[in-house]
Amino acid sequence: MNTVPEVPGILYLRFSKAGGGLPDSAGHEGLLALLGALTPVVEAAPPDGALADVRGALRYFGLDVRGLASVIRIRALALHGVDCAIGAAENPMLARMAARRAAPGTTFVVPGGGAAEFLADRPAAALDGVGAATARTLCAYGLDSVGRIAAAPLGTLQRITGVRTGRELWERAHGIDRTAVLPGAAARSIAAERSFPRDELDRERQRRALMSLTEELGARMRGDGQVCRGLAVCVRYADRTGYSTLTRTRTLREPTAHSAALTALAYRIHDSFALQRARVRGIALRAEGLMESERAAHQLSFDPVDERARRIEAVADRLRDRFGPRAVMPGRLAA
Protein backbone atom coordinates (compact mmCIF):
# COMPACT_ATOMS: atom_id res chain seq x y z
CA MET A 1 0.00 0.00 0.00
CA ASN A 2 1.37 3.43 -0.96
CA THR A 3 1.77 5.96 1.82
CA VAL A 4 1.62 9.72 1.44
CA PRO A 5 4.92 11.37 2.52
CA GLU A 6 4.56 13.56 5.58
CA VAL A 7 4.34 17.28 4.83
CA PRO A 8 7.54 19.17 5.80
CA GLY A 9 5.64 21.27 8.33
CA ILE A 10 8.34 21.89 10.96
CA LEU A 11 10.37 25.08 10.56
CA TYR A 12 13.65 26.00 12.20
CA LEU A 13 14.49 29.68 11.87
CA ARG A 14 17.91 31.28 12.37
CA PHE A 15 17.67 35.04 12.92
CA SER A 16 20.31 37.63 12.11
CA LYS A 17 20.16 41.42 11.94
CA ALA A 18 20.11 42.80 8.41
CA GLY A 19 23.43 44.55 9.06
CA GLY A 20 24.96 41.54 10.80
CA GLY A 21 24.83 40.18 14.35
CA LEU A 22 22.22 38.56 16.53
CA PRO A 23 18.93 40.12 17.70
CA ASP A 24 18.87 41.18 21.35
CA SER A 25 16.59 39.44 23.85
CA ALA A 26 13.74 41.91 23.24
CA GLY A 27 14.09 41.42 19.49
CA HIS A 28 14.06 37.66 19.92
CA GLU A 29 10.88 37.88 21.97
CA GLY A 30 9.30 40.01 19.24
CA LEU A 31 10.16 37.41 16.62
CA LEU A 32 8.64 34.66 18.75
CA ALA A 33 5.47 36.76 19.01
CA LEU A 34 5.47 37.15 15.23
CA LEU A 35 5.56 33.37 14.84
CA GLY A 36 2.92 33.02 17.55
CA ALA A 37 0.51 35.00 15.38
CA LEU A 38 0.76 32.26 12.76
CA THR A 39 0.91 29.14 14.93
CA PRO A 40 0.60 28.50 18.67
CA VAL A 41 3.24 25.74 18.50
CA VAL A 42 6.49 27.73 18.81
CA GLU A 43 9.56 26.77 20.82
CA ALA A 44 12.34 29.26 21.53
CA ALA A 45 15.92 28.29 20.68
CA PRO A 46 17.93 31.25 22.01
CA PRO A 47 19.91 33.27 21.20
CA ASP A 48 19.21 33.23 17.47
CA GLY A 49 16.58 30.63 16.62
CA ALA A 50 13.12 29.17 17.01
CA LEU A 51 11.22 26.00 16.12
CA ALA A 52 7.67 26.19 14.82
CA ASP A 53 5.14 23.51 13.90
CA VAL A 54 3.22 25.15 11.03
CA ARG A 55 1.20 22.19 9.73
CA GLY A 56 -2.02 23.75 10.97
CA ALA A 57 -1.02 27.16 9.58
CA LEU A 58 -0.38 25.68 6.13
CA ARG A 59 -3.94 24.36 6.02
CA TYR A 60 -5.44 27.53 7.50
CA PHE A 61 -3.70 29.98 5.15
CA GLY A 62 -3.76 27.70 2.11
CA LEU A 63 -0.01 28.11 1.51
CA ASP A 64 2.80 25.70 0.86
CA VAL A 65 5.82 25.73 3.18
CA ARG A 66 7.89 28.02 0.95
CA GLY A 67 5.03 30.50 0.72
CA LEU A 68 4.57 30.62 4.49
CA ALA A 69 8.33 30.94 5.00
CA SER A 70 8.32 33.95 2.65
CA VAL A 71 5.56 35.59 4.70
CA ILE A 72 7.58 35.08 7.89
CA ARG A 73 10.77 36.50 6.35
CA ILE A 74 9.02 39.58 4.98
CA ARG A 75 7.34 40.34 8.32
CA ALA A 76 10.55 39.77 10.31
CA LEU A 77 12.50 42.11 8.04
CA ALA A 78 9.79 44.79 7.93
CA LEU A 79 8.90 44.80 11.63
CA HIS A 80 12.20 43.89 13.31
CA GLY A 81 14.95 44.48 10.74
CA VAL A 82 15.89 40.79 11.05
CA ASP A 83 16.67 38.35 8.27
CA CYS A 84 15.83 34.66 8.51
CA ALA A 85 17.48 31.50 7.25
CA ILE A 86 14.74 28.85 7.37
CA GLY A 87 14.93 25.08 7.28
CA ALA A 88 11.74 23.10 6.67
CA ALA A 89 11.35 19.36 7.19
CA GLU A 90 9.08 16.74 8.72
CA ASN A 91 10.74 16.75 12.17
CA PRO A 92 12.82 19.13 14.34
CA MET A 93 16.18 17.42 13.77
CA LEU A 94 15.93 17.60 9.99
CA ALA A 95 14.62 21.17 10.15
CA ARG A 96 17.65 22.26 12.24
CA MET A 97 20.04 20.60 9.80
CA ALA A 98 18.22 22.15 6.83
CA ALA A 99 18.49 25.61 8.42
CA ARG A 100 22.28 25.21 8.55
CA ARG A 101 22.23 24.72 4.77
CA ALA A 102 20.10 27.82 4.19
CA ALA A 103 21.68 31.23 3.63
CA PRO A 104 20.05 34.31 5.22
CA GLY A 105 16.94 35.23 3.25
CA THR A 106 16.45 31.72 1.86
CA THR A 107 14.53 28.55 2.71
CA PHE A 108 15.95 25.04 2.45
CA VAL A 109 13.21 22.38 2.29
CA VAL A 110 13.70 18.67 2.92
CA PRO A 111 10.70 17.15 1.12
CA GLY A 112 8.57 14.50 2.79
CA GLY A 113 10.28 11.15 2.37
CA GLY A 114 13.51 12.87 1.27
CA ALA A 115 15.48 12.44 4.50
CA ALA A 116 17.75 9.65 3.18
CA GLU A 117 18.83 11.66 0.15
CA PHE A 118 19.35 14.83 2.22
CA LEU A 119 21.42 13.06 4.88
CA ALA A 120 23.45 10.68 2.75
CA ASP A 121 26.42 12.92 1.94
CA ARG A 122 26.48 14.88 5.19
CA PRO A 123 29.59 14.33 7.38
CA ALA A 124 29.13 12.32 10.56
CA ALA A 125 29.73 15.42 12.73
CA ALA A 126 26.74 17.18 11.10
CA LEU A 127 24.31 14.74 12.72
CA ASP A 128 22.58 15.94 15.87
CA GLY A 129 24.18 14.53 19.02
CA VAL A 130 27.49 13.63 17.35
CA GLY A 131 30.33 15.53 18.97
CA ALA A 132 33.95 15.68 17.91
CA ALA A 133 34.99 12.59 19.92
CA THR A 134 32.14 10.43 18.60
CA ALA A 135 32.80 11.63 15.05
CA ARG A 136 36.48 10.64 15.35
CA THR A 137 35.50 7.20 16.63
CA LEU A 138 33.04 6.67 13.78
CA CYS A 139 35.54 7.87 11.16
CA ALA A 140 38.11 5.41 12.51
CA TYR A 141 35.69 2.64 11.47
CA GLY A 142 35.08 4.21 8.05
CA LEU A 143 31.70 5.68 9.08
CA ASP A 144 32.56 9.23 8.01
CA SER A 145 29.19 10.15 6.47
CA VAL A 146 25.59 9.90 7.62
CA GLY A 147 24.84 7.64 4.66
CA ARG A 148 27.48 5.14 5.78
CA ILE A 149 26.22 5.29 9.36
CA ALA A 150 22.70 4.55 8.11
CA ALA A 151 23.98 1.58 6.10
CA ALA A 152 25.77 0.08 9.10
CA PRO A 153 23.95 -2.63 11.10
CA LEU A 154 22.44 -1.45 14.37
CA GLY A 155 24.50 -3.98 16.33
CA THR A 156 27.73 -2.64 14.86
CA LEU A 157 26.91 0.93 15.91
CA GLN A 158 26.01 -0.27 19.40
CA ARG A 159 29.32 -2.12 19.75
CA ILE A 160 31.21 1.01 18.67
CA THR A 161 29.36 3.67 20.67
CA GLY A 162 27.28 1.82 23.27
CA VAL A 163 23.76 0.40 23.28
CA ARG A 164 21.77 3.58 23.88
CA THR A 165 23.97 5.90 21.82
CA GLY A 166 24.11 3.39 19.00
CA ARG A 167 20.31 3.16 18.84
CA GLU A 168 19.94 6.97 18.82
CA LEU A 169 22.65 7.28 16.18
CA TRP A 170 21.00 4.66 13.95
CA GLU A 171 17.61 6.38 14.21
CA ARG A 172 18.97 9.85 13.49
CA ALA A 173 20.98 8.60 10.51
CA HIS A 174 17.68 7.30 9.11
CA GLY A 175 16.02 10.69 9.66
CA ILE A 176 14.03 9.55 12.70
CA ASP A 177 13.48 12.16 15.42
CA ARG A 178 11.06 11.37 18.24
CA THR A 179 11.10 14.86 19.73
CA ALA A 180 8.32 17.39 19.17
CA VAL A 181 8.05 21.16 19.17
CA LEU A 182 7.23 22.06 22.77
CA PRO A 183 5.67 25.51 23.22
CA GLY A 184 6.44 27.03 26.59
CA ALA A 185 8.85 24.23 27.47
CA ALA A 186 11.75 24.85 29.79
CA ALA A 187 14.66 26.18 27.81
CA ARG A 188 17.00 23.52 26.45
CA SER A 189 19.73 26.11 26.12
CA ILE A 190 20.78 29.46 27.54
CA ALA A 191 22.91 32.03 25.82
CA ALA A 192 24.76 35.30 26.29
CA GLU A 193 26.59 37.66 23.94
CA ARG A 194 29.38 40.22 24.09
CA SER A 195 29.66 42.95 21.46
CA PHE A 196 32.78 45.04 20.93
CA PRO A 197 32.46 48.81 20.36
CA ARG A 198 34.58 48.41 17.21
CA ASP A 199 36.03 45.57 15.17
CA GLU A 200 38.34 43.73 17.56
CA LEU A 201 41.61 42.20 16.27
CA ASP A 202 43.18 41.53 19.67
CA ARG A 203 42.93 37.79 20.31
CA GLU A 204 43.44 38.28 24.05
CA ARG A 205 40.40 40.58 24.29
CA GLN A 206 38.35 38.03 22.36
CA ARG A 207 39.35 35.30 24.81
CA ARG A 208 38.55 37.54 27.77
CA ALA A 209 35.07 38.02 26.30
CA LEU A 210 34.73 34.24 26.05
CA MET A 211 35.81 33.79 29.65
CA SER A 212 33.29 36.36 30.86
CA LEU A 213 30.58 34.47 28.94
CA THR A 214 31.50 31.10 30.43
CA GLU A 215 31.61 32.64 33.91
CA GLU A 216 28.17 34.17 33.38
CA LEU A 217 26.53 31.03 31.96
CA GLY A 218 28.24 28.76 34.48
CA ALA A 219 26.96 30.87 37.40
CA ARG A 220 23.44 30.95 35.93
CA MET A 221 23.35 27.17 35.52
CA ARG A 222 24.74 26.49 38.98
CA GLY A 223 22.19 28.89 40.47
CA ASP A 224 19.38 27.03 38.69
CA GLY A 225 20.72 23.57 39.55
CA GLN A 226 21.46 22.77 35.90
CA VAL A 227 24.32 21.47 33.78
CA CYS A 228 24.84 21.49 30.02
CA ARG A 229 26.00 18.81 27.61
CA GLY A 230 27.71 21.08 25.08
CA LEU A 231 28.64 24.59 23.99
CA ALA A 232 28.11 26.56 20.79
CA VAL A 233 30.33 29.56 20.01
CA CYS A 234 29.10 32.13 17.49
CA VAL A 235 31.60 34.67 16.14
CA ARG A 236 30.54 37.68 14.05
CA TYR A 237 33.38 39.13 12.01
CA ALA A 238 33.98 41.55 9.13
CA ASP A 239 34.71 40.25 5.63
CA ARG A 240 34.39 41.45 2.04
CA THR A 241 30.60 41.14 2.10
CA GLY A 242 30.13 43.12 5.32
CA TYR A 243 29.70 40.90 8.36
CA SER A 244 29.56 37.11 8.46
CA THR A 245 28.79 34.72 11.29
CA LEU A 246 30.43 31.40 12.10
CA THR A 247 28.95 28.97 14.62
CA ARG A 248 30.45 25.72 15.90
CA THR A 249 29.22 23.31 18.53
CA ARG A 250 31.17 20.82 20.64
CA THR A 251 30.09 18.27 23.23
CA LEU A 252 31.57 18.27 26.74
CA ARG A 253 33.18 15.12 28.12
CA GLU A 254 30.44 15.07 30.75
CA PRO A 255 27.52 17.39 31.57
CA THR A 256 28.80 20.25 33.72
CA ALA A 257 28.33 23.83 34.88
CA HIS A 258 31.94 24.13 36.07
CA SER A 259 33.27 27.40 34.65
CA ALA A 260 36.81 26.10 34.14
CA ALA A 261 35.57 23.21 31.98
CA LEU A 262 33.29 25.54 30.01
CA THR A 263 36.13 28.00 29.44
CA ALA A 264 38.53 25.29 28.24
CA LEU A 265 36.01 24.01 25.68
CA ALA A 266 35.07 27.54 24.55
CA TYR A 267 38.77 28.28 23.93
CA ARG A 268 39.15 25.09 21.87
CA ILE A 269 36.16 26.03 19.73
CA HIS A 270 37.52 29.56 19.31
CA ASP A 271 40.89 28.14 18.20
CA SER A 272 39.17 25.90 15.65
CA PHE A 273 37.86 28.92 13.73
CA ALA A 274 41.47 29.83 12.80
CA LEU A 275 40.39 33.41 12.10
CA GLN A 276 43.90 34.75 12.77
CA ARG A 277 43.67 38.54 12.25
CA ALA A 278 39.91 38.60 11.71
CA ARG A 279 38.07 41.77 12.75
CA VAL A 280 35.60 40.40 15.30
CA ARG A 281 32.57 42.51 16.24
CA GLY A 282 30.79 40.13 18.62
CA ILE A 283 30.94 36.72 20.29
CA ALA A 284 27.98 34.71 21.56
CA LEU A 285 28.04 31.56 23.67
CA ARG A 286 25.21 29.07 24.03
CA ALA A 287 25.05 26.27 26.62
CA GLU A 288 23.11 23.40 25.06
CA GLY A 289 21.40 20.26 26.28
CA LEU A 290 20.43 21.61 29.68
CA MET A 291 19.43 19.10 32.33
CA GLU A 292 19.06 18.97 36.10
CA SER A 293 22.44 18.57 37.77
CA GLU A 294 21.07 15.83 40.04
CA ARG A 295 20.31 13.67 37.00
CA ALA A 296 23.76 14.04 35.43
CA ALA A 297 26.43 11.40 35.81
CA HIS A 298 29.70 12.80 37.19
CA GLN A 299 33.10 11.16 36.79
CA LEU A 300 34.75 10.95 40.22
CA SER A 301 38.05 12.81 40.37
CA PHE A 302 40.97 12.22 42.70
CA ASP A 303 42.65 15.43 41.55
CA PRO A 304 42.87 17.71 44.63
CA VAL A 305 43.35 20.77 42.39
CA ASP A 306 40.03 20.12 40.62
CA GLU A 307 38.16 19.52 43.88
CA ARG A 308 39.65 22.68 45.42
CA ALA A 309 38.63 24.71 42.36
CA ARG A 310 35.04 23.50 42.67
CA ARG A 311 34.90 24.40 46.37
CA ILE A 312 36.28 27.87 45.63
CA GLU A 313 33.70 28.24 42.86
CA ALA A 314 30.88 27.40 45.28
CA VAL A 315 32.12 30.01 47.77
CA ALA A 316 32.44 32.59 44.98
CA ASP A 317 28.85 31.90 43.91
CA ARG A 318 27.61 32.61 47.44
CA LEU A 319 29.59 35.86 47.59
CA ARG A 320 28.21 36.98 44.22
CA ASP A 321 24.67 36.22 45.37
CA ARG A 322 25.23 38.40 48.42
CA PHE A 323 27.35 41.27 47.08
CA GLY A 324 26.66 41.33 43.33
CA PRO A 325 28.02 39.66 40.18
CA ARG A 326 31.31 41.59 40.23
CA ALA A 327 32.15 40.81 43.85
CA VAL A 328 34.36 37.87 42.78
CA MET A 329 35.82 37.36 39.32
CA PRO A 330 38.89 35.83 37.71
CA GLY A 331 41.94 38.12 37.79
CA ARG A 332 42.08 37.99 33.99
CA LEU A 333 38.71 39.76 33.83
CA ALA A 334 39.46 42.29 36.56
CA ALA A 335 42.29 43.83 34.55
Score class of each variant (00 low, 15 high):
273 F>C: 00
322 R>T: 13
223 G>C: 07
222 R>Q: 15
46 P>Y: 09
56 G>F: 08
223 G>I: 08
289 G>S: 14
187 A>C: 10
251 T>K: 13
172 R>H: 08
294 E>T: 15
248 R>E: 04
128 D>H: 15
144 D>L: 06
43 E>Y: 10
55 R>N: 13
273 F>R: 01
16 S>N: 05
27 G>C: 08
272 S>W: 02
30 G>R: 15
279 R>F: 02
101 R>W: 00
330 P>V: 00
182 L>R: 15
45 A>I: 08
130 V>C: 11
300 L>G: 03
34 L>C: 04
98 A>G: 07
15 F>D: 02
166 G>R: 05
232 A>F: 02
160 I>H: 04
273 F>Q: 00
206 Q>K: 11
98 A>D: 02
23 P>S: 10
240 R>H: 04
331 G>E: 12
222 R>N: 12
122 R>V: 06
232 A>W: 00
313 E>P: 05
52 A>H: 09
60 Y>K: 13
218 G>P: 08
163 V>E: 14
4 V>R: 15
320 R>Y: 08
196 F>A: 06
193 E>G: 05
24 D>S: 12
24 D>M: 10
186 A>G: 15
28 H>P: 00
284 A>N: 07
99 A>T: 06
306 D>M: 07
29 E>F: 07
121 D>R: 13
126 A>P: 07
292 E>S: 14
230 G>E: 11
272 S>T: 06
324 G>W: 04
296 A>S: 13
187 A>L: 15
131 G>R: 14
77 L>H: 04
143 L>V: 05
105 G>P: 10
248 R>K: 14
254 E>Y: 04
8 P>Y: 03
249 T>L: 07
96 R>E: 13
39 T>E: 02
259 S>I: 00
24 D>G: 14
233 V>I: 15
320 R>H: 04
221 M>L: 15
88 A>C: 13
155 G>I: 02
4 V>E: 13
195 S>Q: 10
273 F>G: 00
297 A>H: 14
129 G>L: 12
54 V>M: 03
11 L>D: 00
201 L>T: 13
193 E>A: 12
145 S>T: 15
66 R>D: 10
6 E>V: 14
65 V>F: 08
256 T>K: 03
144 D>M: 09
162 G>P: 11
